[in-house]
Design a protein around this nucleic acid. Structure first.
Lengths: 146, 146
DNA sequence: GTATTCTTGAGCAATTTGCTCTACTATGGC
DNA sequence: GCCATAGTAGAGCAAATTGCTCAAGAATAC
């Protein structure tokens, strides 16, 4: 039930891309520098996210990465599932375990399943665009102090 | 963001204990047999849960394990935190990572933090007693078919 | 005191994490 | 066509975690 650095790094990278949405490709080196992610590791995560259909990449000079869809259609759920895999038991993760008393086993399985549905719903409520708006709001409120 | 077999096994074991609540100690071997958990592994998990204050154990003949509190005061959150550790970044898990741009880093940290609060609230809504009631209801509804 | 039951800790193979490095491929510009 | 720039692919690797087993010890009821 923990999120590894993949999810953390991946969200940071996508957030970076979201802030450059519509302004052409962003190079992985720039993302790595801005977000403090080891470049070689980031490249791996970017490939994973491209395969998950979250970003598109262009090679060659002036190449780079960009969101495959607009920031308001990419949710935390998309990011975490792409990078961390299935979220909870009940999606194939625990089918290997010995069942035990069937009534109890089925009941626990249902608990995980319902929990997963709730969790995914929760994660689906936050989009990359929400994060961008929050950052803009915050920058705005800081202005009052000047 | 996944739950390992620890959480799954642990919940099954506690659910077993909840069904025997108030009827004296239950031996780990019985739990293992009923719930399909490898005995040696279960013993480890039971120790972890005892240290977390979820169960109490008695040694010697007729010894065994029992819930330390009543089933309606033990939630899924308690079980998962005891066995799987901290649930999401924002509780010390990700402090090792290089920050990057401070505004972005802080914002992402907040996202994890809020998410964790929501998740824990979600997990706190289900108690061991809820599971027992569900099982009883189900057994009751099965009766109608007979 | 002896059988029973939990406790502690070592050990271990397999998998995952968090990287690095090298080689390769695609593309734009000269 | 050549070359610099970027992404792509995959091997490799140390450290941590998972999912167990096993042996020795300690407490307790009878």
């Amino acid at each position: 039930m923990r999120i590894s650095s993949k999810g953390d790094y991946g969200l940071r990278a996508l957030f970076d891309l979201a802030q450059h949405y519509g302004k052409g490709p962003v190079q992985s080196e720039d993302i790595a520098r801005r977000q403090g992610i080891p470049i070689n590791y980031l490249n791996q995560l970017l490939i994973t996210m491209r395969r998950a259909g979250l970003i598109e990449s262009l090679r060659g000079p002036q190449g780079g990465h960009m969101l495959a869809r607009s920031p308001e259609t990419i949710t935390l759920r998309d990011v975490l599932i792409a990078l961390e895999g299935p979220l909870l038991p009940g999606d194939g993760t625990r089918e290997d375990l010995v069942p035990g008393v069937p009534e109890d086993h089925d009941l626990i399985d249902e608990v995980w399943s319902e929990l997963r549905a709730q969790l995914e719903a929760m994660l689906s409520r936050t989009t990359l665009d929400d994060l961008c708006q929050r950052k803009r709001q915050r920058a705005g409120s800081v202005m009052y102090y000047i």
